[in-house]
Design a binder for these strands. Structure first.
Length: 665
RNA sequence: GCCCACAUAGCUCAGUCGGUAGAGCACUUCCUUGGUAAGGAAGAGGUCACCAGUUCGAGUCUGGUUGUGGGCUCCA
């Protein structure tokens, strides 16, 4: 057999030798580090014999694909440990994607306790210490069925039935055999480090009407060091939890009196409003007009939009009691006969905007009509709420664009620019775009879908933007773009979205008069940049760890007197800062300087301006920055200029800088 | 909507075998006037989430409710 290695060299290997043999012949280090191999791009077991000539690449445990193999193998070791410890345990299956970790669903007749997990963990360590080999076997389906029947496994035959083809592959480690495509590590010892991260309920095939199962989750790595770095990352995430930071920094809090509904404290409200102001500051440039629409509508609106029929379980309804009572008192109706008007609290802005559109007759000259709304929305989410990330009341940087079909592409392009500008200003650099196309169940003509999907793809291509295609994941009413942003902790969040809607214009019978003086149906685009501002607040708080950019910081500068003798001077400095539009306070506490600095540091203030006897005498301040940098003494004008440099909103700053440059000659 | 766990001072948490509660931080007052991440003392703060039950007696045991967390499902 002739194999080509990544460096281009060709090696002759004896027939029947395995990939592991090949690795050993190259070097013992490689043989030790490798967990799998790739033959002509296809992942294979190291212990498999090389079947044909081809290009061979060895995959190490540290490589992303190697980490997947290690996690997948750890998952089998988990199952092995569970069947060893729990007589009669039924095993089902794990995830297809091992990029984040592994899990395996079991039925042992009861939930796993933390003590169970400890025992399972210990048993897994034993299997790994024994370095038991993973043995691959290819058998016919009936043979596999017989093996699982002997093992008393009742879920496996069902899985067997879904698998196409005549034969299946089995992997055996220690005393446990599992149905699996592989590949796996040659032996359990290659699993350098693992950790079980928890147990939770799940259902067979994710279906609540089917058997309840117990899922054990875990992570695994090539070595201890990688596990430790993972654990560190988890601790970091915990320390940055927005619920914790939100309370500690006095930004946001929650109360059982309004479940899953945030209370923004003065500082949090400051940041929140600055976020809104910032987005608003771009709306003129991009041609949006802001509107303010009702909170509570007659349920009729949502009957028209379709939400009443399809979304009612997530909506709050309201009844105006006085109407029924008033009718009875007036004697117009008998008891219980008064007509009650049913009201609903809006869960989204779009139906209201359709109602707004209907109020006037629109000409093609009016389009595109871009209607922005920071309206408060309420959704009766079930138990799946989570801090600010999933709440029952929130507001989006929401807008709807009513346009003609041939205007769609330009609107999409402009929106991509707007999103770029916003994410850039927030320092969110890692953006991935997904294009979700027509699902099975959908409304609207195929030609419409074709046009919209093509427009979206073309716009992205023309802008040179890479995107992932998500076939079939569009909404039933139209295709959409999703903007996924990675935060400082490498977690991905979907923030922005652009959704084409063929449905609502139809339901509301929206029209515009074209240049041909005939009536036409507009297209509606739903779009949001940051999405739910509550959620974005949470994401951004975790992204920054509470150290907001200065323009967003609720308190930008604190003047700290060393002793009370400097208080008057400190007040003067604060007033001068305030004059320049800086959000500044003075520290009046009777603490020592060290304690005052510590307080300001923990509050994550961008600027600390220290004034003591020396500064009083010379008239200036000493500046300390959030990162600990000591700028030393600055006279007052220099200090004010230094602070003001950072405090302005980026969109305002850009506009001013452009103006300064004067007209382009 | 489903499964599991948890709920003690503003926050973080201790509370043994069932015998009516503690610490640190924060808060208030007083002392201290100091030079770049915690000066000192005293004080106040609790229907142990809520409602039932078992018991001579419940923070502790049982059931229910609400809330929170983790997971599953859903997401027009």
């Amino acid at each position: 057999m002739k194999v080509t290695l990544p460096d281009g060299s060709v090696k002759e290997v004896p027939t029947g030798s395995t990939f592991l043999d090949l690795a050993k012949s190259i070097g013992p280090g490689l043989a030790k580090a490798a967990v799998a191999a790739k033959l002509d791009g296809e992942l294979v077991d190291l212990q498999a014999s090389i079947p044909k000539d081809g290009r061979v690449v060895f995959i190490r445990g540290q490589d992303p694909e190697g980490a997947d193999v290690i996690r997948h193998s750890a998952e089998h070791v988990l199952a092995t440990a569970v069947v060893r410890l729990f007589a009669g345990a039924q095993v089902t299956m794990g995830p297809a994607d091992h990029s984040k970790g592994f899990y395996y669903d079991f039925d042992v007749g009861r939930p796993f306790t933390p003590e169970d997990l400890e025992k399972i963990d210990a048993e897994m360590k034993k299997v790994i210490a024994e370095d038991v080999p993973f043995v691959r076997r290819e058998v016919t389906k009936p043979e596999a069925g017989k093996i699982f029947a002997e093992m008393g496994q009742r879920f496996k035959p069902e899985i067997l039935a879904w698998i196409p083809g005549e034969t299946v592959t089995l992997y055996q480690d220690a005393n446990f055999i599992d149905l699996c495509k592989g590949p796996h590590v040659p032996s359990a010892g290659k699993i350098g480090a693992f950790k079980l991260t928890g147990a939770a309920g799940a259902y067979w095939r994710g279906d609540a009407t089917k058997d309840p199962l117990q899922r054990i989750r875990g992570v695994a790595f090539a070595n201890k060091k990688e596990l430790e770095s993972y654990e560190k990352q988890m601790e970091l995430a915990k320390a940055r939890d927005h619920r914790k930071l939100g309370r500690e920094l006095g930004l946001v809090n929650f109360s059982p009196l309004a479940p899953a509904s945030p209370f923004f404290l003065p500082k949090g409200a400051k940041v929140y409003n600055l976020m809104v102001d910032y987005v608003r500051s771009l709306y003129d440039k991009y041609g949006y007009q802001e509107v303010i629409t009702p909170q509570i509508f007659s349920a009729e609106l949502f009957k028209t939009s379709g939400h009443y029929e399809n979304y009612a379980e997530n909506m709050y309804f309201a009844e105006a009691g006085h109407e029924a009572a008033g009718g009875e008192e007036a004697g117009a109706f008998g008891p219980g006969e008064a007509p009650t008007v049913e009201y609903a609290v809006k869960p989204m802005n779009c139906p209201g905007h359709c109602a707004l559109y209907q109020m006037d007759l629109h000409s093609f000259r009016d389009l595109p009509w871009r209607v922005a709304d920071f309206g408060r929305l309420h959704r009766a989410e079930g138990d799946a709420t989570h801090g600010l990330m999933r709440v029952r009341t929130f507001c989006q940087d929401d807008a709807h664009i009513f346009c003609a079909e041939d205007q769609m592409a330009a609107e999409m392009a402009s929106f991509v620019d707007l999103v770029d500008e916003v994410y850039g200003d927030f320092g969110l650099g890692d953006v991935k775009i997904r294009l979700a196309t027509r699902p099975e169940k959908r409304m609207g003509a195929d030609e419409q879908w074709e046009r919209a999907e093509t427009d979206l793809a073309t716009v992205l291509k023309e802008k040179g933007r890479a995107f992932d295609l998500a076939p079939g994941e569009g909404a039933f009413y139209g295709p959409k773009l999703e903007f996924h942003v990675k935060d400082a902790l490498d977690r991905s969040w979907q923030l922005g979205t652009l959704q084409v809607d063929f449905n609502l214009p139809e339901r509301f019978g929206l029209e515009y008069v074209g240049s041909d003086s005939a009536r036409h149906r507009p297209i509606m685009l739903h779009r949001a940049i940051l999405g739910s501002l509550e959620r974005f607040f949470g994401v951004y708080l975790e992204h920054t760890g509470g150290i907001f950019p200065t323009w967003l910081a609720p308190e930008q500068a604190r003047v700290i007197p060393v002793t009370d003798r400097a208080l008057a001077h400190a007040e003067k400095i604060r007033a001068a800062l305030e004059e320049r539009g800086v959000r500044a306070t003075t520290d009046h506490s009777s603490d020592k300087l060290g304690a005052k600095i510590r307080e300001a540091q923990l509050a994550k203030l961008p600027f600390m301006l220290i004034v003591g006897d020396k500064e009083v005498e010379k008239g200036g301040v000493s500046i300390r920055l959030q990162d600990g940098t000591d700028l030393g003494y600055l006279d007052l004008p220099a200090a004010l200029a230094r602070v003001a440099e950072d405090t302005e909103m980026p969109s305002h700053k850009r506009r001013r800088d452009t103006q300064k440059q004067g007209p382009v000659v």
